[in-house]
Amino acid sequence: MKAYVALLHSIVLGDGRRVVMADLKAMAEALGCRAPRTLVATGNLLFEAPEKPLAELEAELEKAFEKTFGRHVDIIVRSAEDWSRLAAGNPFLAESERDPASVHVRVMRLPLEVDMREKLLGYCSRGERVAIVDGDLWVDFAGKASESKLLGALTTKRLGIGTVRNWNTVKGLRGMVAG
């Protein structure tokens, strides 16, 4: 068995409905995942399963999610080891510790090209900084992400399938995979 982290792009089902984490865990158990657990109501699922390609796990989870909740949601899966490596690669660690809500990572299904950093710099007007580490996009929003033009540029259409997590969530998941 291998430990994995699954990140849902959205837990909003429409009409004010959200995915209940107990239902998400039950869905994972029905797929044969062991020890499913979540990090509060953030759309993050940790579980154990036989080792297989990440793309296969993503497809299985997405299909089960659509069947269970009636809506397609992109799901990104990383092994526990890869998640620990992602957290250790935070290029804005000092800023993250000072203001965890200002640093985010967009975890990508397919790695971003290095030149994407240059394309995003045009959206940085308030001191934001961006870095691509192992294909994932790290952003120091230098304050509230919601006040940045850059946040609106981090779309699936522009960057491909991925999902954003703040440093508090990254650290919380790192602690769960380590423990």
Rank of each mutant, 00 (worst) to 15 (best):
H9V: 06
G179E: 12
C124L: 04
D82L: 10
L173K: 02
L8T: 02
C124P: 03
R158F: 12
S84C: 04
N166A: 09
T155K: 12
F47K: 05
R117F: 02
K149W: 12
N166M: 08
E56L: 12
H72S: 13
G32C: 13
S125F: 03
C33M: 15
E56C: 09
D23G: 11
M1S: 11
A22V: 13
V73G: 05
A22M: 12
R98Q: 13
A49E: 01
T169R: 03
L93H: 10
V164I: 15
W167D: 00
F47C: 11
T38S: 14
M27H: 07
A3H: 07
W138Q: 10
A22G: 06
L45G: 04
G179V: 10
S10Q: 09
A87Y: 09
G143T: 08
V114Y: 05
F92W: 07
R34S: 14
A6L: 08
K67I: 08
I11P: 03
H72D: 11
D134A: 15
F47Q: 05
V170Y: 00
R78L: 15
S79I: 02
E118K: 15
V139E: 01
V139F: 02
L121M: 15
L173R: 02
T156N: 11
K157F: 08
T68V: 05
P50T: 11
L154K: 00
G14L: 09
K149R: 14
R117Q: 15
D136S: 05
L31D: 07
R158G: 06
T42S: 15
L150R: 07
L24Q: 01
S102N: 06
K52A: 15
G162F: 05
F69D: 05
L39W: 13
H104S: 09
I132L: 10
M21N: 07
K149L: 15
H72N: 12
A131R: 14
N166S: 07
A59E: 13
W138T: 03
K52M: 15
E56N: 10
P53L: 06
R126L: 14
M116T: 14
E60K: 14
A3F: 03
T156A: 12
G89S: 15
T155C: 07
F141L: 04
K119G: 04
R126Q: 12
G70C: 08
A80V: 01
V103G: 03
P91T: 10
S84V: 10
R17A: 14
S79P: 04
D23T: 12
S125R: 13
T156F: 04
L150S: 10
G135S: 02
G122S: 14
F47A: 07
A142F: 11
R126P: 01
N168Y: 09
S96L: 05
E62G: 04
A6K: 06
L137C: 04
S10A: 14
L150G: 03
T156K: 14
L13P: 05
T42Q: 14
R165D: 05
D74K: 10
A153Y: 01
D99Y: 09
A178R: 09
E128M: 06
G89Y: 04
A49P: 00
A30W: 05
G32T: 12
L45P: 08
R106F: 00
L24W: 02
W167N: 04
G172L: 11
G14N: 10
A3K: 11
